[in-house]
């Protein structure tokens, strides 16, 4: 994601509480190395492959990108493993932002450090409002997510102290900007 993408529009995929990293990317796919471009794409193809089988497909067979670009979820999104493959597979599949009530710490941190996606927090429980397939628009500057069909507007919490790291594109960008590394 590049700087200046302040408006994001796309289809929403809705999940509940405690979506763990094994559901986001099952361990059998951790043999893929995210920094190898071909394997980065393959991780996208396997994003959310660990969800229960009754869930609608996130990436359809034969594709490595999802038709969805926003995930809306409940509490404690990304709990479990420190596998960076988790935010990376979502980013590789084309997810620009996750909007959850709360995040597990390491997933949040990895999203920020990699700059793969915006881990946004909603004030309200949006996973009970949005349905998979809804269109939504996120305005980062005004901190709002809009449900396109109804025009309903929901507040996003400010990013706080991680905002400058996200704005710099991740921890390396931030460290260069602040003179920590050259």
């Amino acid at each position: 994601m590049s700087e200046g993408d302040q408006i994001m529009r796309g289809k929403v995929y809705v999940l509940g509480d405690n979506i763990d990293t094994d559901q986001i990317i099952p361990a059998e796919f951790l043999n893929l190395v995210p920094t190898i471009p071909e394997e980065y794409r393959k991780l996208g193809a396997r994003a959310l492959a660990g969800l229960p089988d009754e869930m609608p497909p996130f990436v359809t067979d034969g594709n490595d990108k999802s038709e969805f670009s926003i995930v809306v979820a409940g509490r404690n999104f990304g709990c479990g493993s420190s596998r960076e493959h988790a935010p990376i597979c979502l980013g590789a599949a084309g997810i620009n932002a996750v909007v959850a009530e709360t995040y597990a710490r390491i997933f949040f941190r990895n999203s920020v450090a990699t700059g793969e996606l915006y881990p946004l927090e909603s004030a309200a429980r949006l996973c009970d409002v949005f349905q998979t397939g809804d269109e939504a628009e996120i305005d980062l500057d005004s901190g709002i997510i809009v449900r396109t069909a109804t025009g309903e507007r929901f507040e996003l919490k400010p990013l706080g102290p991680v905002a400058p790291v996200i704005d710099a594109g991740g921890i390396f960008g931030y460290a260069r900007k602040t003179g920590m590394i050259s």
Partner: peptide, 20 residues
């Protein structure tokens, strides 16, 4: 504590990490 690859790559080069 547990960290991701990007933070670990940063440590490999600098020995440092930003923590809360």
């Amino acid at each position: 504590t547990g960290i991701g690859n990007t933070d670990a790559g940063f440590i490999l080069g600098t020995g440092k990490l930003l923590v809360k």
